[in-house]
């Protein structure tokens, strides 16, 4: 016999799956019906979702809060430019190689800040990102401080008209964001998810219970570096140019992303998706207010932190008692109710 709460969660789960399938169909069909502008906004939304998932992975789950994630976004942008333009590789191949370079740059970066914890770790990532941005401005062949545009053959590699190009970018960013979101859901339900949260909550106890943080932390950091680099390369394809200030943008790839995760719900897989949608909607509806819009964003974030630290997901959780946050709640509840019945 199903209890009322079991039945409720069953209904909710079924409806979530139905909504997800409908949304997937809509997204796949969208380029045929939507305007070019909508494709542009949605592609940007997908990139934001991906960036937010990665910041949430490091800060919300792994206890490695960074303010330097623009480092790997920039590395991705510059790697893509280096491979596709300077080395003359085919653009799709260059795109596929950016995660490798992102992961390779993440390991030495991690080695430099491995001994830092909490706020010091965050500041370390920031300093590192700003240093690499300055190095990027000195690199020959990348246009120094002004940056460089993608030459026409690279810019048109994914489509010669803007309609086909935007459609290709739309699908690429959609696949990346969906992959990262599903990947996060799977990861956090796995033993690695348990280990990351244990390390975050109580590092010395985690060691005593068998978790080798010396292997796990660099692995996660490299994975995040890879994903961020791919997102950086996709952003370069969208914007058609690189420059130290835009490719390594603290505001676009770190500050706004922190806002997104805090609003949506830190430590939850759904949070970054919800937060990214809210961010885009707020930004577009407040855009004509000028700089005041940043103040409003800040106030919203502060209010959220004070009244619901778990973001919109926390609000939903509180209202509906539906957990998108804790992966093991349902199995525990069912195992307990099994025991009660027998």
């Amino acid at each position: 016999m199903m209890s009322a709460s079991d039945r409720l969660s069953h209904v909710l789960r079924t409806s979530i799956i139905a909504v997800a399938i409908a949304a997937l169909a809509l997204v796949v069909m969208w380029p045929m019906v939507g305007s070019l502008n909508s494709l542009r906004y949605l592609a940007e939304l997908f990139v934001l979702i991906g960036l937010a998932q990665m910041w949430n992975l490091l800060s919300g789950y792994a206890g490695m809060a960074t303010v330097g994630q623009h480092l790997f976004v920039g590395v991705g942008a510059y790697s893509f430019y280096g491979l596709a333009v300077l080395a003359g590789w085919p653009a799709p191949l260059a795109l596929l190689c950016t995660p490798v370079l992102g992961a390779m740059s993440a390991l030495p970066a991690f080695a430099m800040i491995v001994r830092l914890r909490t706020a010091y770790f965050a500041i370390g990532t920031w300093v590192l990102a700003e240093s690499v941005k300055i190095i990027a401005a000195k690199l020959p062949g990348f246009g120094h401080g002004l940056g460089a545009s993608l030459p026409v053959p690279v810019a048109t590699a994914f489509g010669s008209s803007s309609a086909t190009r935007l459609t290709a970018i739309f699908y690429l960013t959609f696949i990346t964001a969906t992959g990262l979101t599903l990947g996060m859901a799977v990861l956090m339900r796995s033993r690695i998810g348990l280990a990351l949260r244990a390390l975050r909550d109580q590092e010395s106890a985690a060691h005593v219970f068998g978790i080798n943080s010396r292997r796990l932390r660099p692995m996660i950091f490299a994975g995040v570096g890879a994903a961020l680099a791919l997102l950086g390369a996709l952003t370069t394809l969208q914007r058609l140019r690189i420059s130290p200030d835009t490719s390594f943008s603290l505001l676009d790839y770190t500050v706004n992303i922190i806002f997104i995760v805090i609003i949506g719900g830190i430590g939850s897989t759904a949070g970054p998706v919800i937060g990214a949608v809210i961010f885009i909607v707020l930004r577009e509806s407040l855009a004509n207010l000028g700089p005041i819009y940043l103040i409003i964003l800040g106030l919203v974030a502060i209010a959220m932190m004070l009244f619901e630290p778990k973001g919109v997901v926390g609000l939903i959780d509180r209202l509906a008692r539906l957990s998108l946050t804790i992966p093991f709640r349902r199995p525990i509840l069912s195992s307990l109710s099994n025991r009660k019945r027998t």
């Binding site: 348990l194 280990a195 949260r197 244990a198 975050r200 909550d201 109580q202 010395s204 106890a205 985690a206 219970f209 068998g210 978790i211 430590g267 804790i326 093991f328 709640r329 525990i332």
Partner: peptide, 15 residues
């Protein structure tokens, strides 16, 4: 030294 933000069951799952 519990893993404070994890459930009791998850604490055991880590071990």
């Amino acid at each position: 030294k519990p893993f404070g933000d994890m459930t009791v069951f998850e604490n055991l799952m880590v071990a």
